[in-house]
Design a protein around this nucleic acid. Structure first.
Lengths: 142, 142
DNA sequence: TGCAAACCTACAGTCACTTGACACTTAAAG
DNA sequence: CTTTAAGTGTCAAGTGACTGTAGGTTTGCA
């Protein structure tokens, strides 16, 4: 039987985050001691590991909810998990593409900064005038 | 004299976002019509363009506040803008590196999915067991 | 038994917006 | 000059995924 702190350490999750997952129904309500403290078993450890690993791969909590559901019902078609993962892969691809455009732009900016006073600063100049951009980064780079 | 909507169109910003920028002191309080509607001039257009362009390059609103300050005081050393830009560049580099690791992992996952029922799903299996990962993606992939 | 460390609840704060409700203003068409 | 639709106003709350704080309680060990 694990305390919430131990579970946190084993999965690399902050205590508050575990309680948060419970609150939004991603983690089940665990057993409690007489004094009211949470105690976890292996099932919960596995579930939290699944959640954290999925988060590290960039899945949203909503996507994880679906994936957990799939995992809980082994007869459902694998195809659904595949769709979610592919969607995620697409998003990652897009993000990388955008970030690379930004990187190029930033690098150019920084490279051209002469180090004088800010009225002559290339960095500020580029920010001021979008037309100086080599790339058209329409969407936000996050 | 531009309405808030026109300003929004010219800069690719939602009306609410412009009001939000005003609220947090990033945009100045503009002049108003008798009826109380905001009217903007070219100074504000430039300022908002600067903000939006910086956002597209991934700068936080706090960083943008500093950059605007620098831009408003042309005698301050350019070096400060350079530091902010370099910091941003470092962050972008790190994000790209992390996303590429995730991409690899996701690709492998999706590739190995056979399409049967979810109890045999490679996607779910990988999510369940972190030890199957080729990479150690410690930080969140966002 | 004493005590520190870990736990509890409840709520506020973060970031960068977005959405909603509801009322008022403006510009153009008729 | 009136109507009307589109646009604008304020204020408040919601989003995602947590993080942090305050103030009190429980646990496990010496």
């Amino acid at each position: 039987m694990l305390t919430i702190g131990t579970l946190g350490k084993k999965t690399g999750t902050k205590v508050q985050t575990i309680r948060y997952y419970e609150q939004i129904g991603l983690m089940p309500e665990p057993g409690r001691t007489e004094g009211g403290q949470r105690r976890y078993g292996d099932g919960e450890l596995d579930r939290l590991s699944f959640i954290r690993h999925s988060r590290q791969l960039g899945f949203s909590l909503e996507a994880i909810r679906e994936l957990l559901d799939l995992s809980d019902n082994p007869k459902r078609p694998c195809h659904e998990a595949d769709v979610i993962a592919r969607r995620q892969l697409d998003q990652v691809d897009q993000r990388i593409a955008r970030l690379e455009a930004l990187r190029k732009e930033l690098k150019r900016m920084v490279h051209e900064c002469s180090g004088g006073i800010s009225s002559d600063c290339r960095v500020l100049e580029v920010l001021r005038d979008h037309s100086e951009c080599l790339t058209n980064h329409d969407e936000i780079g996050a």
